[in-house]
C-alpha cells in the first residue's frame, strides 16, 4: 500500500503538525522517532483517520483516508490499550478481529498458531481472563497479534516494543523484519535500536515537522544517538562570547 500526504496539517493550541509531502512506497517500512510531543502519535492517528486534519489529507493508494473505507480492510494497527476491547478474552478478541476482516474461524486459528511462540510462557491465547485483567505487556501482545492477524498491506504501530519482555521484543522484531518488502509499515518507537533494525527509512519528527528522512544503513543507530544526545549537551560558546 502506497502512503502519501498532501499538505497535511493538524493544529492543537500552540502546536502544529505539518507534513506537506511525504511518500512511503509500497512495502517500505518507515520508522518514526522523535521526542515526546513531537507529533508521532498525532501523525499515526491522522493516517488511521482517528482525528480530522485541519488541512490536507492522507492518501492510501490514492484514496483519501477520511473519505474511503476500503483501506481499513487492508490495514492492521495498534496504537495502545485504547485499541483493545478489554471485556473480551484475548482469544475472543482475535476471533472478533478476524471476523471484521472476513477471515474464517479456521483461517484465524491457523494464523494464530504462528504466534504461539510469541507468548509461549504466558498462554494468553488460552486464558479465560479478560484483556483488562492482563498485565500491560500481555495486553500489548494481544493488540499486536490482532494487528498482525489479517496479514495487512499496511501496518501501523505506536511504541510496539513498550512493556514487552526482551525475548518478546526480539520476536516482534523478527516478525516485522519478515514482513519487510511485502507490507508497508509505520513504526513509531523510542527504542532507537529496534526501530532502526525493522525500518528501511527513519524519519525524525521535531516540533511537528519531519527534520530528517533518510534510508537506514549500518551507521543510522549511531547517527540517531548522536542527534538526540546533542540536544541535551549545553551549546558551545562562540570564541567572541568566550573573550567577553
Amino acid at each position: 500500500m502506497n502512503l502519501t500526504t498532501d499538505t497535511l496539517t493538524k493544529r492543537y493550541d500552540e502546536f502544529e503538525l505539518s507534513i506537506p509531502d511525504l511518500t512511503v512506497e509500497r512495502g517500505t517500512a518507515l520508522g518514526l522517532v522523535g521526542n515526546n510531543g513531537a507529533g508521532k502519535t498525532t501523525f499515526l492517528r491522522l493516517v488511521l483517520d482517528l482525528i480530522r486534519a485541519d488541512a490536507g489529507q492522507v492518501r492510501l493508494d490514492g484514496d483519501t483516508v477520511a473519505d474511503a473505507f476500503d483501506w481499513k480492510e487492508r490495514t492492521g494497527s495498534y496504537l495502545g490499550p485504547s485499541f483493545l476491547i478489554d471485556f473480551l478474552t484475548p482469544d475472543e478478541y482475535w476471533h472478533f478481529v478476524g471476523q471484521t476482516y472476513d477471515l474464517s474461524e479456521a483461517t484465524v486459528d491457523e494464523r494464530l498458531a504462528q504466534f504461539a511462540d510469541f507468548y509461549v510462557d504466558e498462554p494468553i491465547g488460552e486464558t479465560t481472563k479478560y484483556i483488562r485483567d492482563l498485565s500491560t505487556g500481555n495486553k500489548n501482545k494481544a493488540g499486536l497479534v490482532a494487528a498482525l492477524l489479517p496479514q495487512p498491506d499496511l501496518l501501523v504501530f505506536d511504541e510496539p516494543f513498550a512493556s514487552l519482555d526482551p525475548r518478546s521484543q526480539i520476536q516482534l522484531k523478527e516478525l516485522l523484519q519478515a514482513r519487510r518488502g511485502d507490507t508497508t509499515m509505520l513504526v513509531s518507537s523510542h527504542d532507537l535500536g529496534h526501530v532502526t533494525d525493522v525500518s528501511d527509512r527513519i524519519a525524525i519528527l521535531e516540533g511537528g515537522e519531519i527534520v530528517r528522512d533518510e534510508p537506514t544503513d549500518p551507521d543510522t543507530l549511531e547517527d540517531l544517538t548522536t542527534y538526540f544526545a546533542e540536544a541535551i549537551r549545553p551549546k558551545e560558546t562562540e570564541p567572541a562570547d568566550a573573550e567577553a
Binding site: F69, K72, T75, S77, Y101
Partner: peptide, 13 residues
C-alpha cells in the same frame, strides 16, 4: 470510551 479507537480503526463501516 476506553476502546473507542478499537472500534473506529477496524474495518467496520
Amino acid at each position: 470510551g476506553t476502546g473507542v479507537e478499537a472500534c473506529m480503526a477496524r474495518p467496520v463501516s
